[in-house]
Nucleic acid binder design. Structure first.
Lengths: 219, 219, 219, 219
DNA sequence: TATGAATGAGTATTCATTCAT
DNA sequence: GATGAATGAATACTCATTCAT
């Protein structure tokens, strides 16, 4: 392990002038961090938080046992790092303000959320949600992070959108603003189904969500 | 992981009077077993599998550290024993055959499922579901049990009911039989919300379910 | 190591009826505890607090690595246990109230403190003091314990005695009550000398103390 | 543990003006070394040897983690270097030959030692002694150095002085030449008291020493 | 020379499990 | 059957030391 060259060692060559600060390679640092987070994600998904060992993460990232600690002071911090990274940029563009003039709410949701759903399915965001689900009891901090970064903001937007839809006579039913959860319930169900209940016959979460939209909004 | 049948399993049969016999007491054995399972359920719900300690279970059951091992050879066996027992006693009564003549499907679901929902909320069924949810990745066998005993049968009945509802023109939307999950998605959402996302402001799962029924079925 | 019979396994035989509480041997428990504390004392004296390992303590006591933790939850607690045990009963009988009627203060100190000095020299109390000395910076709690249990009470008594000596015209010099430390300074010096400065030519701490007494009190 | 002579040890000799040369700069080297030693002293005093980290030393000296290793190959060498340097500059001036004709021994000691005592108190000599005290068990070599450079020479002079004092009838008691330690015992006590036992109410070591002198010598 | 990222041996602590009483 | 003292594998985390830049 000592001195073992990390996987990619032809980094700085093709870039123009990968500015160094003083001291050892900045390139490698970023690479190492990425390797660690990525290894950690894999470990956590495979084993869950409690059963994942820092040792295994390090081995998987092909770094020494102590290296992850240079980036994350504790196992919890590493977990948080993973979640944050996966969530960053995932804050779907579901922003009520982005609705085009004249665009129906249902159409807007279809346009903005469906692509995100596709991502959820291809391992990633959904897996993280499942992780929060399975480790949340033991690790409440995780739930906090998740809610703050992802869940609560989304719910806020949905509330606004439902209100608009009702005002504009687009709602087929009397879905109340206080229950925007009914909009996303199928997504959670899909995550549970695909991640736990029946991995062999995964549901298409996008389809599920769309079917639910049809129940609620006029075409 | 084995079912590990405890040494004495002919408990309730011969006893004519719920009194103490002398000696190794069959009564006491059953009592002890119950105490252990009950303590274990509480521990697992509070801490999750990994963080629950056999020590705490024993202390909670007011027995010695070694005693649980007389009933369950390993911690995993204890966990499985707990969930198995709780699931076994939790079988839902939603049977399409029980629908009264002329009773609408929506009405039938309201009549049979809502009371069950109430139970879900008062600690019990929901807690078990949450346990399966949080530990399922690590204990796939549990999911199997859960599906066989609870989930798949319920889904089967729902499928039949949705079919009837459609045939009888009661469905407000084109909910397809293959998607009875949309019926119960709000229940899962409620379990997640109340157990993980926001314990401080629990949702009324019955209300949620009923609101969803209104979206789907004509009154 | 598993099942390895502890050193003394002929315990209960010769005693009349070494009463058992329920469960495993109480005898052995006390023995184990003693073995651990004793091993710990040896380790701490040899290595100092920081360099002593719990592992070595356990090995030295011939128990498993986890056993010391049954008695002391942390390494610090073990250290405290050692100090407490060695200090307990060491609270010298230097109690001003014990001075015989007509007994001179100098004579009283000679009578009560000199025997204690002898003990100090034969490994034990002095070693503990040295331990407090060498580990006190890093482990202030130790100093607290030591002061409370040993040092401050002794100083209080000495203050009373010096006052009496002065009132009774026994003091050769103007040693002020606020400086009873001058009485025990030679003891500390002896501990330092014997424990650190010159182990090969140990001083007789009792002699040193007595010589100091002669400087201060009329015979 | 080795003396580990740093690469460049001809520092102050050739420099005609305390200005910067170009290049690898001998100046800067010496400066860096001084910064490191000084930072290390502070760290060791605060934390003790085991708890002081090379990282903290480097940070305190405002150099990189690897830099101290250019001057001292190991942590132990750094420690020894620090103590050696501090001891070297701390040689006490108590030389019997310096006694003025007709000057009483007590007066001479007061004149020469009291100023040194003042220094002891203002962090410095006392701190070093305390360091030797607290780390001496683990680093016997340090004790050797200390004795050779400081302690034994001082004791020798004291022996001579006590002899003179006795010959000249200045001694109030029968303090024997073999016990010059009684003279300095209060100093050690003071160091222990101020450094460990009661930092909040430091004793004036000079006062303590002077009071002791009064016990021994005629004014 | 100086830097600081990376290394990995070392350690306190936990806890499922065993087994003598 | 029950007890609880003892066991020891497993694991998060630390930090002196190395070495490529």
């Amino acid at each position: 392990m000592r001195g073992s060259p990390p996987k990619k060692t032809q980094p700085a060559k093709t870039r123009p002038l990968p500015q160094r600060t003083r001291g050892p390679s900045v390139e490698k640092t970023a690479q190492t961090r990425r390797a660690i987070v990525s290894a950690a994600l894999a470990e956590f998904l495979e084993k869950g938080f409690a059963n994942a060992t820092m040792d295994a993460v390090a081995r998987r990232a092909d770094v020494a046992k102590g290296t992850p600690y240079r980036y994350f002071p504790t196992k919890e911090a590493l977990f948080e790092g993973v979640v944050r990274q996966e969530i960053a940029g995932a804050l779907v563009e579901v922003n009520a303000a982005n609705r085009a003039p004249g665009e129906k709410v249902g159409a807007f949701l279809r346009r903005t959320m469906l692509p995100a759903m596709r991502v959820v399915e291809r391992q990633g965001r959904g897996a993280i949600a499942r992780l929060v689900l399975t480790e949340g009891v033991r690790f409440p901090a995780l739930v906090e992070i998740y809610r703050r970064a992802m869940f609560d903001p989304l719910l806020d937007e949905l509330r606004k959108l439902v209100k608009s839809a009702r005002d504009e006579g687009e709602l087929k039913t009397d879905l109340r603003v206080e229950r925007p959860q009914l909009l996303i319930a199928p997504i959670w169900y899909g995550i549970i189904h695909n991640g736990l209940l029946d991995r062999s016959q995964p549901l298409d979460i996008g389809d599920l969500f769309e079917a639910n939209l049809d129940l609620l909004f006029e075409r």
